[in-house]
Nucleic acid binder design. Structure first.
Lengths: 170, 170
DNA sequence: CCTGTATAGTAACAGTATTACACCTACCTG
DNA sequence: CAGGTAGGTGTAATACTGTTACTATACAGG
């Protein structure tokens, strides 16, 4: 079980073969279609930059990478595309880093919310099921008579790969 | 029980009598002393601005308020003071708003970590015990072979006061 | 067509945070 | 007491993150 969970949470760094990326773009397009949102050229380009890295990436880094490829857009355009991608649910925002990463769990329909594990060394972000934790947070809020609307749980630390490298050095 | 929890989490807005603030400053000084940190004039001033509001407050808002009172300091000085206050544990950082608020739970020694409830309407921030939740988060991370180091749990919604006002309007 | 809606472009700016370097106390320690 | 060291603050510049306001374009439906 932990093997599967592990693989889901922390897929290997991109081998740059592009096939995985193409699949991710296709799935993103399906998400947009399912929600009656438009997967425009700009949104696709922004999504590709985010999905092309396993680390989280900032808005201005996306902007710089697009510029390197000859597409010069303003910050606001990046943010608008990001908003659409967030709404479609194909990326997530990492509040503690003001950065974004591609969602790799295709189980939205289960309604189970994930929590985010962000590696401090390599920047990779993994997701693991956290529905039971979000439920408890809701109860904790209720007990303080607080009406919860948005919750987030983020963890910083070392991903499995980086943790084992650290251990090797010791 | 919920009454006590509630009062702890969401104390009433400041009546500006200053006595509560003076007590908070005194307790902060004790925290600094206990940790062999220096509670300098600047740190105290920054702390007072944070503790004087029940809402979270941004670094540049602190800067502006100090300026209004005749103390003009650079952003970096505010951030350095904030770092010290965070280290002393007398304020917390709200990652989802890039803002800060005074810690009102004086139970650090119990080692039980709180989670943060941030009101979207009035800005008030409450804390409720979340140790059991942090424990579960640690387990969830472990199951993904992730070495957790820092955890964030934040909830946005309506505090008891604002929630009942909303209800009244309906 | 024309018109409404969603999307994208342009420019300026507001808000958040850091780097680099200088100074200056306070407090060791010899 | 001289000199050293460490922590704290001052000054200036800059980098990073995000938004406002306004204009322009694209396309679907009447």
């Amino acid at each position: 079980m932990s093997d599967v969970a592990n693989r889901t949470a922390f897929p290997p760094p991109d081998k740059s073969n592009g096939k995985r990326l193409a699949k991710a773009v296709e799935r993103a397009g399906e998400e947009f279609a399912a929600k009656n949102l438009r997967f425009t050229k700009l949104r696709q380009m922004v999504y590709e930059e985010i999905a092309a890295t396993y680390a989280s990436i900032g808005a201005y880094e996306i902007l710089a990478r697009l510029a390197d490829k000859g597409t010069r857009v303003a910050p606001i355009s990046i943010y608008r595309a990001i908003d659409a991608l967030l709404e479609a649910g194909v990326i997530h925002r990492l509040e503690s880093k003001n950065a974004f990463f591609a969602c790799r769990r295709m189980d939205h329909r289960t309604g189970r919310r994930p929590l985010f594990l962000s590696c401090e060394k390599c920047g990779a972000v993994g997701e693991v099921d956290g529905q039971h934790i979000f439920d408890l947070i809701g109860e904790a809020a209720n007990s303080a008579k607080f009406v919860a609307r948005v919750k987030f749980v983020e963890v910083q630390g070392l991903c499995p790969r980086c943790a084992s490298e650290e251990k090797d050095k010791a």
